[in-house]
Design a protein around this nucleic acid. Structure first.
Lengths: 328, 328
DNA sequence: GCTTGTGGTGAGAGCGTTTCCAGGTGTGCG
DNA sequence: CGCACACCTGGAAACGCTCTCACCACAAGC
């Protein structure tokens, strides 16, 4: 009877190549000296045996941790239920797989950013992606974490940050509405403390101001439920509204649902736009005009930054492209 | 100047409690003997120091791995892009976080299930969740993996499996259509090789047969794009169709979009139903009648099974509840 | 008295890796 | 020739944890 086929260790590779463990390690890591012939023999042996380094042993000796944590800031753990979070986690997991690193999800109360310290001290954590942070949270990032954190959605001078060009996308959207004759354009936003929402709102305000038009803002929270109520509020306050900019596709879909319920024609009476270009935007009624949001690319870039600990550069902004469909 | 606050180790806890490392380990793990007073002292010390065991060290010595891999079977890596996969990964990540385990994503070619062996031999892997598997893939699960695998979506005698009650949900749906007067009910399915799709189709066939009605089946693939084409095909082949059962909400939404484009009234001319109850189902036009699908619960249960290595029991079936809205 | 348990404890090995350090060779140069 | 210096290698010490094993004290049984 054969043994249950233990995974090959560095020791096995070294023995097969006729060198010491230290040498094998050096060759495989590509650090330090190694003669060409040893190099070949070691890599050959490793290939033949199908060697993969044990991430646990490696993490232990390097003191480097074994998982990437996606930290979602918010007022309650319910923020973890957002499909957006799942997309980020999925993309991060895809990125981390080749490194033998897993991904984990964690809720951080916005009111108590000090809890970040726990994560900073956890030896299992090799990097953090901060989602939906605030300036306060970013300020609470302990020094020991510098180089292991990346932020998605809010820029920072001390943490590498990544996001879609909310401002540019929203500005283009509002201009598009203007170009198609809309003048009484309202916006359903997200929570005020979210920076990405802030940038969108800012862009909206700016374009409207440039056009000499007043801003019409109603707060939402990214859920379709809240968006429905917001739509009603918009029409109650400004009955002549002829366009509503949703901060996200879910928001826009909620708005359209409400308008339809009230017998308002889209885009005939009121044009509606979203942001994100989720797959279902194309099959909404009418098909939703929106702007792209490369979530997966952004998450991968953030994961990379959180793991490679590069220098802090100005926030990386991913372009957003207008997708014109029927709703506006 | 203080040192950068190294995370406390078991050694530190032991010293603080005045016992040996071995004893501290026993107390914290709850294994073996320990007098009540020692127990108290150790737990107190651990609490005071904020001790968390290093997952890497623990995995190393226990030979237990450090991440849970979500294996998605399919013909191309594109299967990883399915939002459903992200939801499973997100839920698994939430479940694994307290254990210090990360989650990773991996594509397994349906044609080449032997590649599972690589994962089985990877010491970094402590458990596997198989998604969209086939009987062939399940048969290829190496013995060394028994007790560390769970399957979502397809049952197996050797692997604990979990899924929503596709059959029951679909049967209830078809009966609902029948009860509301629909007699010429078609179905847009998923790929034939997917077991979950098979169960839905089977249930549909059975209910139709019991009612003495012929089955009308068109294959889809869970994308809205394919669903649109499938809808057209349905109407081309059976112009008198008065209801279409979608295998998923995305499918149903695609179907509705096509019907609308063709000037067919929903639910006036044709009723349409989905499956999953995604948030956007409620804001579709018309609001989509569908069945619930507790993805997060299922994923958590599967993660638990893959990690705890319990005995193989008959597949665990999570109930699906009918959600009646306007489309049927 | 001596054995046999049984509850409680600590010394120490070992998990697989990286890395420091102490050697070796050889080559070039004074 | 002697010495520096580059190149190459292996021994061994960590990293933080679990777990086997040996040990000690005490009680019960012959």
């Amino acid at each position: 009877m054969t043994t249950p086929r233990r995974a090959p260790t560095l020791e096995d590779v070294a023995r097969a190549a006729g060198v010491s463990r230290a040498t094998a390690s050096r060759v495989l890591a590509g650090t330090g000296y190694a003669s060409p012939v040893t190099r070949d023999r070691v890599s050959a042996a490793a290939g033949r045996l199908g060697y993969t380094p044990d991430p646990a042993a490696r993490a232990l000796v390097r003191g480097t941790g074994v998982r990437l944590v996606t930290v979602v800031c918010g007022t309650s753990p319910a923020v973890l239920d957002d499909p957006y979070v799942d997309r980020v986690v999925g993309a991060a997991a895809r990125f981390c797989a080749p490194h033998g690193l897993g991904v984990t999800l964690h809720w951080l109360p916005t009111r108590d950013p000090a809890r970040l310290r726990r994560l900073a001290e956890d030896r299992g954590v090799s990097g953090l992606i901060l989602l939906n942070t605030t300036a306060a949270v970013l300020a609470a990032v302990p020094r020991t974490l510098r180089g292991r954190v990346a932020s998605i959605g809010v820029g920072s001078p001390v943490v590498p940050s990544f996001d879609v060009d909310n401002g540019g996308g929203t500005a283009a959207m509002v201009r598009h509405l203007y170009a198609t004759g809309r003048r009484r354009v309202a916006m359903v936003t997200g929570p005020r403390w979210l920076a990405c929402a802030g940038r969108s709102v800012h862009a909206y305000r700016q374009v409207m101001r440039e056009a000499g038009l007043p801003a019409r803002l109603v707060r939402g929270d990214f859920t379709v439920h809240r968006a429905r109520m917001a739509a009603r509020e918009v029409l109650a306050r400004w009955p002549d509204t002829d366009a509503i900019v949703g901060i996200s596709d879910a928001t826009a879909l909620g708005v359209m649902d409400r308008l339809r319920g009230d017998g308002v024609q889209v885009p005939g009476d009121v044009a509606v736009t979203g942001f994100d270009d989720i797959p279902l935007a194309a099959v909404a009624t009418p098909a939703l005009t929106t702007a792209t949001h490369p979530v997966a690319e952004i998450a991968a870039a953030a994961a990379n930054a959180a793991l490679s600990g590069g220098a802090v550069r100005p926030p990386t902004v991913f372009p957003s492209r207008l997708v014109r469909r029927l709703s506006a």
